[in-house]
Amino acid sequence: MIEVEGLTKRYGRKLAVDHLSFQVRPGVVTGFLGPNGAGKSTTMRMMLDLDNPTSGSVRINGQGYHDLPDPLKHIGALLEAKAMHGGRTAYNNLLCLAQSNRIPRRRVDEVLDMVGLTAVAKKKSKGFSLGMGQRLGIASALLGNPEILMFDEPVNGLDPEGIHWIRNLMKALAAEGRTIFVSSHLMSEMALTADHLIVIGQGRLLANTSMADFIHQNSRSYARLRSPQPEQLRDVLRDAGYAVTEAGGGALEIDGAETERLGELAAEHRIVLHELSAQRASLEEAFMQMTAESVEYHAHTGGEEPGGQLPPGGGWGPEQAPQQAQQPAWGQGWNQGGRDGRRDKEI
């Protein structure tokens, strides 16, 4: 169990992490999601007592990281960059860590075997490929057989087989009752591994929800209609008992309705339809919509404003994405966060 309370980190004028509070519970994989520069790595470094928080605190199983006797036996972490001495062999790198926390030497062989590096155990780690380096980092996290594991973008640089392997590893570790906290900037990746989601943008908490709820709220299917007689159409639909929402641009949306029935209804009342389509919002769209206002580093492909709204007419127009107002649980949060985030930047 990790408890984060009011965690804040300020670099000069920039708030990298802004009053984050959440808990990471055992037995499930908790995804830590946010766009580039959202503050994921900074938060994780503060959890390990590597960076000093400006304010706030982190407790690991009820204790400060500093007070853990042999911390590697409680929490293992894979950090962002390569964090081993390249001139030392993989085996010796792990041995140094094991000795410092009184972990028996045979555990080094065990974890090397678990990550599939036994064959290169006696090779200097500077010759390792990105994927091998990542595996070595994972081996170091597993070294103390800890109940809590933290991975910062573990699939970075891994090939499909490696990605598959780490997904299954995380699930297996969670199934053993461990606490798994894994960061990513890919919603699609999280959808496959995480049971719980914590989303941040510009250092602020945007959502803290179970994956099932997130999917339930965000991957809704709905029908979309456009007509030159919108008032008439709306009245007809309302009379038929449908809850109609205006989606802007004269379009109407109806949750969960079948397009066949709507088409027939319009025909019965001789209403012209310009569009009648079944829509489904993807999780990736929901995530992008949620964090749009807090994305820091935009690729400028058109005349869009930095930190502004979604690009119009892209592959996923704003009309297609779910309406924020329907998810007050987190919808309010991101709106707030986005605006304040931008104000921060202008100061």
């Binding site: 007592d49 590597l50 972490a77 950090l79 390569k82 964090a83 001495h85 410092s100």
Partner: peptide, 9 residues
């Protein structure tokens, strides 16, 4: 080498 973070953790 970046080992410092691993060492301090």
């Amino acid at each position: 080498s970046g080992m410092i973070r691993t060492s301090l953790a």
